[in-house]
Every structure is written in structure tokens, then in C-alpha cells.
């Protein structure tokens, strides 16, 4: 069976050990985590964990079922139809052209986040595949550091 990429959104009780339960399940059963983000859901005592994973259909089904079995997990949403966004911060040397970098970031729905004495920081939020293209495009401006955030997603 061919591997497919899937975004899984997990609603959990806000408690200290819940992230280790989720990540431990992936590690222990040999499932793969490409990105993971977690943050509290406003006005509740729940959090949302968003995981991008890859696996065969059977593995993806097992991931969903095994996640469901964790006691503090309320809901597992596994959808092909999700709106996905990812964020990236890139640090460039100050001697690169600011206007070019700004134009590049804007082309990917972003902009300049910070300019300091010796560096420029660009920021972009876009779909994961476009983030990949953006990161490639930054190469010609000699990026010093690239920090990608995990994927966040919401059902369409």
C-alpha cells in the first residue's frame, strides 16, 4: 500500500501529560510525525494538536483509532479536505537586498518581520507546498537560518 500524507487534528483535554501520550503513541507504534503543533482552544480547557503524518491506509486508520483510545482525547479529525497553513521565518544577512527579499516574501503572502543592525527577518504564512517553494527561492539570498512552524489546519 502506498503512503499518503494526512493532516490529523486531535482535540484533547488540557493536561500536562497529554502531549507525551500522543507523541509517545506515534513513537511506540512506529508512526511518523512530519510536523506537530499544539495550542489551547480559546475559552475551553481543551487543546488542539495538529499532526501531519504519512502512512498506508491501514496505518492511518490505526493512528486514528489508537488516538481515540487515549483517555484524554475527545475527538480525532482526519480529513482530506482541510485548509492548511504553515509559517516560516527566515534570517538573511543585512547586505542582501531588502527590496528583493520583501518582494519575495510578499509573493508568498508574507513580509519583512524585522530588520536589525546585521540581519533581515522575513516571514511567510502559506500552504505547506508553497512554503517549500518559498524556502527554495530564499536560497539565492544566502539565508542564515530558516525556522518552519508546523502545519495548522481547519476543516473546510
Amino acid at each position: 500500500m502506498a503512503d499518503v500524507r494526512r493532516v490529523i487534528s486531535i482535540l484533547v483535554e488540557n493536561e500536562s501529560s497529554v502531549l507525551s501520550r500522543v507523541s509517545g503513541l506515534f513513537a511506540g507504534r512506529g508512526y511518523n510525525i512530519e510536523t506537530l503543533t499544539v495550542a489551547p482552544i480559546p475559552d475551553t480547557n481543551r487543546s488542539r494538536i495538529t499532526i501531519v503524518t504519512k502512512g498506508s491506509k491501514r496505518v492511518l486508520e490505526q493512528i486514528t483509532k489508537q488516538l481515540h483510545k487515549l483517555i484524554p482525547v475527545y475527538k480525532v479529525v482526519e480529513h482530506e479536505e482541510m485548509v492548511e497553513k504553515e509559517m516560516v521565518l527566515v534570517k538573511f544577512p543585512i547586505d542582501e537586498k531588502l527590496a528583493d527579499i520583501q518582494a519575495l516574501c510578499q509573493a508568498y503572502n508574507g513580509g519583512i518581520a524585522n530588520v536589525g543592525a546585521d540581519m533581515i527577518i522575513g516571514m511567510v504564512t502559506d500552504e505547506p507546498c508553497r512554503i517549500k517553494h518559498f524556502v527554495e527561492a530564499t536560497k539565492r539570498y544566502n539565508p542564515i537560518e530558516i525556522v518552519r512552524g508546523g502545519v495548522v489546519a481547519i476543516e473546510r
Binding site: 491501514r58 483509532k65 481515540h68 483510545k69
Partner: peptide, 8 residues
């Protein structure tokens, strides 16, 4: 009783 056992 455990859905994860089914089609595992």
C-alpha cells in the same frame, strides 16, 4: 470492544 483491533 476495541475498534483498533478491527482490521488491524
Amino acid at each position: 470492544i476495541d475498534p483498533a483491533n478491527i482490521s488491524k
